[in-house]
């Protein structure tokens, strides 16, 4: 972690003392992290600890309880809706409402923040759409309807849509659920290459801790206490993963960076 590298990268997302949840119940608090452009970050933790809630709070889908979320040095709530739409794009777990859309139509919707009142696509819009399609290798699927696609294909389309929105930050909620091992790895490698190539910040929630350790630049571990954050290798050194799960079923092997089932 050379000082020079840090200087070059612009901070895009800074979270300090964040508490998330609903009015009636705090789900997680004391969350601190920051991510820069071109970085891939994973949010991991056991079921029900608030990974999705955190991601939805970052994406302004639900309000935070306290603390601060800064997008490019400006508080999230101070962004007007349309400005924010140019900063953050989402890939959520909820299914899209209309599966009758063609792949191309769906990806083109990503350009909405930039189009005129009728939503007509400009030349630049078409270029961005084409770029997103080629980056996700969707050329052959682009005229298909969404209900004809497999889960993995649809996930790629949704990522392409977020990419076409051309935002500083892309947030993805569990982008690898329902996918087999091969497609999980494919999607995560793709996210990494997109982050590095386009200098976008990509944050996703995941249960694939071992893959995240291998692929991510940074990780946040939600553990109901101090929510450790850092580069995966530093987190391993700190022994952060050992405390992630209750000790009765799995244990973490720091030398291989993987979990072992306790017999």
């Amino acid at each position: 972690m050379s000082f020079k590298k840090d200087e070059k990268l612009r901070l895009t997302l800074e979270v300090a003392d964040l508490a998330i949840g609903y009015k009636s119940a705090v789900i997680a608090k004391n969350i601190n992290f920051n991510v820069s452009e071109g970085e891939l970050m994973a949010i991991v933790g056991i079921n029900g600890i608030g990974k999705s809630t955190l991601l939805r709070t970052l994406g302004n889908v639900q309000p935070k309880l306290s603390g601060s979320i800064k997008i490019e040095q400006r508080e999230l709530e101070n962004y007007p809706a349309l400005k924010l739409a140019a900063k953050i794009s989402l890939v959520l777990t909820e299914p899209i409402a209309s599966k009758n859309m063609s792949v191309l139509e769906l990806i083109a919707l990503g350009r909405q923040p930039y189009t005129n009142w009728l939503g007509s696509l400009s030349k630049e819009d078409r270029t961005k759409i084409k770029e997103a399609i080629s980056m996700l290798q969707l050329e052959e699927l682009q005229h298909r309807k969404c209900f004809e696609l497999s889960d993995g294909q649809l996930q790629r389309v949704m990522i392409a849509r977020a990419l076409a929105q051309d935002t500083t930050i892309i947030l993805l909620d569990e982008p690898t659920t329902h996918l087999d091992l091969y497609h999980k790895v494919k999607i995560l490698k793709l996210l990494k290459s997109i982050a590095h190539r386009t200098k976008k910040t990509i944050v996703f929630t995941s249960h694939e801790i071992e893959m995240a350790i291998q692929l991510c630049d940074k990780m946040v571990l939600l553990d109901r206490k101090n929510n450790p954050f850092g580069q995966p290798c530093h987190l391993i050194e700190q022994g952060a993963f050992e405390a992630l799960f209750p000790g009765d079923a799995v244990s973490f092997d720091a030398s291989t960076g993987s979990f072992r089932i306790q017999k």
Partner: peptide, 23 residues
Amino acid sequence: ILSIKALNAFLLGEDYARSLGVD
């Protein structure tokens, strides 16, 4: 006609529509 853009965004669902800047 004034709602065309919002209607198209609603095809994705309300959370997505909001993330696209729809009021």
